[in-house]
Computed example of a mutant assay.
Amino acid sequence: MKKVDRYYYPAIFTYEDGKEIAVTFPDLDCATSGEDEKDALLSARDLLGCVLNGLEEDGEPIPPASRLCDMKLEDNERAVLVDVYMPSIRNANVNKSVNRTVTLPAWLNAAALERNINFSQVLQEALKQQIL
């Protein structure tokens, strides 16, 4: 089954004096916030991508998005349609770096440092060679 490239979900932006803008996704039962509208929208997009990517990776069903016009709002709330381009999210998670602790003999560590050898690069090249 082909994965969806772009999702659109309604979010509710809640405004309160002196506080960050709260952002909730009623269809996904998750929330974030932002200092201003731009920051809130960027945070909402990041959260939407993370949640949907997690559902995809876990094989969970993606809930249908509600219609923007069906959102029930208070006076201090606004409905905003948030989109996310999933290929970018998926690729970012595939190429995400992780830290590993490596134990080396002291003499080998000293010799490598003396020669300005990039430990991460050497390890990556060696692992690729072993795997491929």
Rank of each mutant, 00 (worst) to 15 (best):
D46S: 15
S66V: 00
G59M: 02
S66N: 04
G54R: 09
L41N: 03
R67T: 08
V51D: 01
E57R: 13
G54F: 01
L81H: 09
D36W: 01
L47K: 07
V84F: 03
D46Q: 13
V82D: 04
R67N: 12
A65C: 03
P64C: 04
L47S: 13
V82I: 15
G49I: 11
L55F: 08
L55K: 11
L48N: 14
N76G: 09
A65Y: 01
P64F: 00
L55T: 11
L48W: 01
R78M: 10
V80D: 03
K72Q: 15
A40W: 08
G59W: 02
N76H: 14
A65E: 02
S43N: 13
L48Y: 07
P63H: 01
G54P: 03
R45Q: 15
A40Y: 11
R67E: 08
G59P: 10
R45M: 14
L68K: 10
D58Q: 13
C50F: 08
E77V: 12
G54D: 04
D83E: 13
C50V: 14
I62V: 07
C69F: 06
R78H: 11
M71Y: 02
A79E: 07
A44D: 09
A40R: 13
V80Y: 07
N53F: 07
N76Y: 09
E74N: 10
L81W: 12
L42P: 03
D36L: 00
E57Q: 14
R78F: 08
K38D: 08
I62P: 01
D75A: 15
L42E: 13
E56N: 06
D83N: 14
D39S: 10
L52R: 12
P63D: 00
P64A: 09
V82Y: 10
G54Q: 03
D75P: 05
A65H: 01
D70Q: 10
K72P: 10
K38L: 12
P64Q: 09
C50S: 13
V80G: 11
E60V: 05
D36M: 02
D39W: 01
R78Y: 05
P64S: 05
L81S: 13
V51K: 00
L81G: 11
L68S: 04
L81C: 08
C50I: 15
V84R: 06
